[in-house]
Design a protein around this nucleic acid. Sequence first.
RNA 1: GCGCAGAUGCCCGAGCGGCCUAAGGGAGCGGCCUGCAAAGCCGUGAUUCGCGGGUUCAAAUCCCGCUCUGCGCUCCA
Length: 451
Amino acid sequence: MISLYDTVESKVVPLRLRDPGQVSIYVCGPTVYGPPHIGHGRHTMVYDVLRRFLVWKGLDVTFVSNITDIDDKIIGRANDEGREWQDIATKCENIWWKSMDLYNVDRPDHVPHATDYVDQMVELISVLLDDGKAYLTGDGVYLRVSQVADYGLLANQDLDDLLEGGGDRTVVGTEKENPADFAMWKFTKEGEPSWPSPWGDGRPGWHTECVVMALDILGEGFDLHTGGLDLVFPHHENERAQAVANGKNFATHWMHHGFVEMEGEKMSKSLGNVKNLLDLAEQFDPRAYRLLVLQSHYRSPMEVTEATLNNAQAAMQRLDTFARRFADATESPDAEAMNEFDTVMSRDLDSAGAVDLMFRKVREANTARDAGDGGAAGSAAATALEIASVLGLELESSGDDVPAEIEALVQRRTDARAAKDWAAADQIRDELTAAGWTVEDSADGPVARRI
RNA sequence: GCGCAGAUGCCCGAGCGGCCUAAGGGAGCGGCCUGCAAAGCCGUGAUUCGCGGGUUCAAAUCCCGCUCUGCGCUCCA
């Protein structure tokens, strides 16, 4: 069985499943108020790989990822730009999915939208109010954190330590009984969207959205709740607190991934707006970014620079060349190697180890083929290709469509070579290069390829 | 101040107490192959793992302290 690092236990533990053979996963999705950045890219690709791996293992995976389509940031931007908040949310969500497609992130099985769950949120808040777990103030409804016995479980800190703080933030909401209490419902202010509730028009708090949607779709005691390290506290802590206050079992496991780091100013200047996933995809092969993500462990900080992207892009070229070379291999993957893949990935999702294995198989395949051992080559190649597929790396095995004029040049070069007219052959190759093509003289004849 | 994550070659990074004189990718250099290239392959690249102690027959891996980096510390990042 697969083991994952659990935030609550602070160690790698075997994944315990509520229902054997089935895995339920809730991934905190985006608040749609702007374009997704490379941090979102890592976030979605890490869990995309987890999901692909679990499916490959034969598990029945239910993967839920929400869209937070109502939030202060969306409202803020709408007000700044004089637009409707729905317009911002809809457009940003479209851009989100466009980005996910570019980076080959599979769509979740369920995509709950916060605005579709307001009624259920109101219901939850009502129950908590009735139970005395929550209370009303002039600006909203708050959860009484002191009523949650193990509050601070995820943050791994006592309430007192949490309150102490070190930041320069001043605690607002003076009507709160305890500074740690958080808003589940916020009464509407001028120019803000609102929904009706027994206590007055308003909108739900961020933490309330996710707890309601996760429990509604996946049910009590679902297997895995994930997100970025920045969500551990307060977001996940508070989601859990509401479930616990309501007497419900929440997630069994908590998984959090590390951040993307860039060399500060230098990076953003040299790469311009490459922090944005769509812009990055225009300058680099999106698969290069996926490879970069795969090559570092999901909990480690990850360095992204122009150099690391170029590096990964070169590695992708190597993989594409390999895929073309073995496009018609019919052998099956090597069972022992796939077993190793399974072991490596099951150990806290060691995708870097999987990439390692994949590249070793690529070399093994190339070496075997050069040595004329087609069977061994095909098997090693099939192994590498299968691993690439599970990791969500789509390799380009078909080669480029060669236009007639390029084809003609290649033929002329072949003729010149046959006539041992090297000068002419080299000149034609220069012409091909100028036209953006390169030619590789393989054992099966010359192959033209776009540069 | 408290908590979490991290610090490994030129770069990115794996490394789960002995198989680590430390994987894999990229770059460089040398070679094989090639008419020359490209692709592919081989070789070379850290006797060393932020710093200082300690545990152990054995530590990059465990423990303690320190330094530095990122994140979080409560509607709002």
